[in-house]
């Protein structure tokens, strides 16, 4: 126990150290170097020429990669007012995140509603497994973004298309895991249910579901991870709202500090989602 605590402490100290080194290196790499900005050895004509070629030697430093201090200031700025709304291209990070999370929640829930019952069916019936297998094998490896044009054409609504893309990418890991979990429920538990003449509904909910729950939740966790990866890309494509659109918009504004901030937010939210599913997974895991 003491050993474990010592390990955790040492790991934490090391994490902080690594972070400090990283920020330090970043600071050094982005610090303005005196004399370079004014362009020594460059005649006014040369500077003028460089400007015409689109390379402004004077502006380069101020528009270059932001320093840690600038990013920190941006983070504080955004977090101090996350929910403001000043028109379509200027919304608080909280609102953008809310849109993204809403789409993910909707698409993911729809995927659950389809994948879990269908996975049960496939897991229980070898006939269904064999007949649906070719479709699943072909559909599964398709990048969810490849569906985007078809979705936009048929659904015509960009937000709904985003939800559809989340649905389609979440469905496969859940489907495959549910089918696998259900198919590998121990024979002996099913035999117990058989000898007790348990009705199929009670069997599904009291025997098969708890037995397969850890595998199903593994599938859901993978799906959620993929959905969070995909939503950013999808929102970059369809635009409008969401954290992905925010990244795209700030890139167009050439505001790298905002992009860095958004990247950090995406990482932290993804981690929190994964932690939540990890917690759920532990809650349904049983020791056999």
């Amino acid at each position: 126990m003491g050993l474990m605590r010592g390990l955790a402490l040492r790991a934490a100290v090391l994490s902080v150290l690594l972070f400090a080194v990283f920020v330090g290196a970043w600071q050094v790499a982005t610090a303005p170097v005196a004399g370079v900005a004014s362009g020594p050895g460059l005649s006014p004509e040369q500077i003028e020429y460089a400007r015409m070629m689109g390379k402004d030697p004077g502006a380069q430093k101020s528009g270059g990669f932001p320093t840690p201090g600038q990013v920190a200031a941006t983070i504080v700025g955004h977090l101090s007012d996350p929910f403001y709304d000043k028109g379509p291209n200027d919304k608080g990070i909280g609102i953008q995140l809310g849109h993204s999370l809403g789409r993910v929640a909707l698409g993911f829930s729809l995927a659950c509603l389809v994948a879990i019952p269908l996975g049960f069916l496939i897991g229980m019936s070898p006939l269904m497994r064999r007949s649906l297998d070719p479709f699943i094998q072909v559909l599964k490896p398709i990048s969810p973004l490849a569906w985007m044009p078809l979705a936009l054409y048929t659904i015509k609504d960009s937000s709904a298309s985003g939800i559809f893309v989340i649905f389609i990418c979440s469905v496969w890991p859940m489907l495959v895991n549910t089918a696998f979990g259900v198919a590998s429920v121990k024979r002996e538990w099913l035999n117990v249910a058989l000898t007790l003449e348990v009705s199929s509904m009670r069997k599904a909910f009291l025997v098969i579901l708890p037995a397969a729950a850890p595998t199903i939740l593994t599938g859901m966790r993978i799906s959620m991870g993929i959905a969070w990866l995909v939503i950013v890309a999808a929102e970059m494509l369809v635009g409008g709202t969401g954290i992905g659109y925010f990244v795209w918009n700030e890139w167009n504004n050439l505001s790298l500090t905002n992009v860095i901030f958004a990247v950090l937010v995406i990482g932290v939210v993804g981690m929190l989602l994964d932690l939540a599913f990890g917690w759920l997974q532990r809650a349904v895991t049983y020791v056999d």
Partner: peptide
């Protein structure tokens, strides 16, 4: 077919761990 009239104690205990 199986029936509640015949109770079985299985070779492994076959308890549901959840």
């Amino acid at each position: 077919g199986p029936s509640l009239d015949r109770g079985v104690v299985f070779q492994g205990h076959a308890l549901m761990p959840w």
